[in-house]
Design a protein around this nucleic acid. Structure first.
Length: 587
RNA sequence: GGUCCCAUAGCUCAGCUGGAUAGAGCAACUGAUUUCUAAUCAGUAGGUCUCAGGUUCGAAUCCUGAUGGGAUCACCA
């Protein structure tokens, strides 16, 4: 629609002798109750025209109609100039861009971006919160790829630390040698079980100490279990063989479990980082910061940065004993990532509970003069809450990822069989279909919401399969495929010159796909794609309902409609793939 | 207490850099299938866009304040 903007600028120049910029041209899609496709808001020009909004619209409209071939007419309602664009224009857009194989896939822009997501702890299985993270990260990566970026998907695994030692210790004490093989339990769930067991036993000890007269604070610090866990962590850091062996064994169990969940979720990574390798990084950055005067040392030897000028606090960056804190290793890891890939941008998909941490992290890197720091971005997403409140792993109030996925598949199966649509499917195809639909419902449900907003999930209410959902869009795709397979080979070349209004609406909707991808990439927002593809499916369904495709009045029209259908199916499939959702051929 | 985020229909959400009578889905009610897949389509009903000020020709959108909810302010990660 750039030509309308350009022409409007010319019109204002010609008519009112005033130069305006493209930003001053306020274009919007014409509301469907009015004639036309593009609307120009003319209020802002009245100060140049010194005429009423209606009169100004009349003059600009007349100018456009006389000087722009594609403008076939206009009408004015108050300060709104509704412009009708000739059918030939829409058909040209369709034939020259929409039908092209690479439609919606931008040429490489020469920029490299890293998307870090998932980043799990290896002491417990994944839950719904992690699912949101994984889907967001995967989708953002796919969207950036479509927008022309070279993308590196990274996973920074938190595989060490006191919390890992807790599960290890509990397994040593209570496990009796239990393994995934002996128990038939998925490895990550088995380890998670001991993490919970630790917490239970720890709490008992705390209560005992409190009964013996200690304060809560003292009890927490002096309970034998926590002391043992700390001891184990020290042994781990010292490279104690026995501890390292156990750590490796249990982590392997967890990774086997994660691999299965990741596969079900359909996510993957190009680069893994492990905190066991990176936790010592960052100390040279501390030295660098001290030398540059960005950090300062306190008497006890601890190193700090003063961010009070930025409205933040003083922040510890290195302990008095010289060991790292969270931010120390993140500083080091950021440098490592940049040294590895030299990317222009780096996206951290991490929950909004860490907003402060990332603010500080990025600020420190900027103060250190890292030129690449300006390309860092924290994609901060809202927590997934239950009606009962926050999910807590230790208290077992979590929606487990594996359970949820199985439930989604089961529901998909139930719904599909109730409709009797898979009677003639092979068993294998059935299973795959239920999986696609179940995951489609779940993924769409999580991705259609603006990432930064918190999400409420009620386990007692099943995820919908009708209306504004993944299955609705998947169904639209399957429906098109069905018509196409019945339509056979299209041999007649369509020479339609006057599309009907539904057909034109469909073309307009399709033509908006590339700009939607660009916007979604700019905002790191899969919800933009989700909402777009829903709109497209809706327009198609309306078209499908109103127009007969196979019984079209003539062969040309039939060819035209089949063609529109095929293009719609392609865009639906492409857009859904950006959300990590597969679309079936039949359902 | 300091800082940050959020608040739109009974419920779940859209609403682009300010623009028309604030839109969808679910739930409720009506209607559409001997015709290309009814997981669909068409319609009815449902709103003080949390509240109060301000900026503007024009505010759900921008600014200030209040209320409610959430997060964070560790020598945890």
């Amino acid at each position: 629609m750039d030509f309308i903007t350009t022409a409007t600028i010319q019109a204002v120049k010609q008519l009112y002798n005033t130069t305006i910029t493209p930003q001053d041209v306020n274009l919007q899609q014409t509301r469907k109750e009015f004639e036309g496709q593009v609307t120009i808001v003319t209020f802002p020009y009245t100060k140049f025209s010194r005429k009423s909004p209606e009169q100004t619209g009349q003059e600009i409209g007349t100018y456009l109609q006389e000087n722009v071939a594609e403008v076939s007419g206009f009408n004015i309602i108050k300060g709104f100039l509704n412009v009708s664009i000739a059918d030939s224009y829409w058909l040209a857009v369709y034939n020259e861009t929409v039908v092209k194989e690479d439609f919606g896939i931008a040429a490489p822009n020469g920029k490299k971006v890293m998307v870090e997501y998932s980043s799990p702890n290896t002491n417990k299985p994944l839950h719904l919160g992690h699912v949101r993270n994984n889907l967001l990260g995967y989708s953002v990566a796919a969207i950036l790829k479509a927008a022309g970026y070279e993308v590196i998907k990274a996973n920074l695994v938190n595989d060490r630390g006191i919390h890992i030692c807790k599960s290890m210790l509990a397994w040593q004490l209570f496990g009796n040698g239990e393994t995934p093989q002996s128990s038939g339990m998925k490895g990550d769930h088995l380890v998670g079980k001991y993490y919970v067991l630790f917490d239970k036993a720890y709490k008992v000890q705390i209560e005992e100490l409190k009964a013996a007269g200690k304060t809560e604070e003292e009890a927490k610090k002096s309970a034998p279990l926590i002391l043992q866990a700390q001891q184990m962590l020290q042994k781990w850091e010292a490279g104690n063989e026995e501890v390292i062996d156990l750590w490796k064994t249990m982590n392997t169990w967890v990774y086997d479990g994660f691999a299965k969940t990741y596969k079900k979720l359909g996510v993957d990574f190009d680069q893994y980082y492990y905190e066991s390798n990176t936790y010592l990084l960052g100390k040279d950055i501390i030295e660098e910061g001290l030398a540059k005067g960005v950090f300062f040392k306190k008497e006890d030897g601890s190193v700090w940065i003063d961010l009070t000028d930025e409205g933040l606090d003083q922040k510890l960056v290195l302990r008095a004993d010289g060991t790292s804190v969270y931010i120390t290793q993140d500083l080091g890891t950021a440098q490592l990532k940049y040294d590895n890939f030299g990317m222009d941008e780096s996206i951290y998909v991490v929950g909004n509970e860490q907003d402060y941490h990332f603010k500080v992290l990025f600020l420190i890197l900027q103060k250190l003069g890292k030129t690449w720091a300006k390309g860092l971005y924290h994609l901060s997403y809202g927590m997934v809450d239950l009606p009962s409140g926050k999910m807590k792993s230790r208290e077992g109030t979590v929606v487990d990822a594996d359970d949820l996925i199985s439930e989604m598949e089961a529901t998909a199966k139930e719904q599909t069989e109730a409709l009797g649509k898979t009677a003639d499917f092979a068993e294998e195809d059935k299973q795959h279909l239920y999986y696609i639909i179940g995951m489609g419902a779940l993924k769409y449900f999580l991705l259609k919401v603006d990432p930064k907003k918190r999400l409420l999930f009620d386990p007692n209410e099943s995820v919908d399969f009708q209306g504004h959902t993944g299955p609705f869009i998947q169904y639209t795709h399957a429906r098109i495929k069905s018509v196409m397979s019945r339509g056979g080979e299209v041999t007649v070349v369509s020479t339609i010159t006057e599309p009907d209004s539904v057909e034109r609406d469909l073309i307009i909707a399709m033509s908006q796909y590339p700009e939607t991808v660009n916007q979604a990439a700019k905002d790191f927002n899969p919800a933009a794609i989700a909402n777009y593809v829903y709109e497209l499916a809706k327009v198609y369904n309306k078209f499908y309902h109103e127009k007969s495709i196979l019984q079209a009045e003539n062969e040309e029209l039939k060819a035209f409609r089949l063609n529109l259908s095929a293009s719609t199916a392609k865009i639906i499939a492409k857009a859904m793939l950006l959300l990590g959702i597969e679309v079936p051929e039949r359902m």
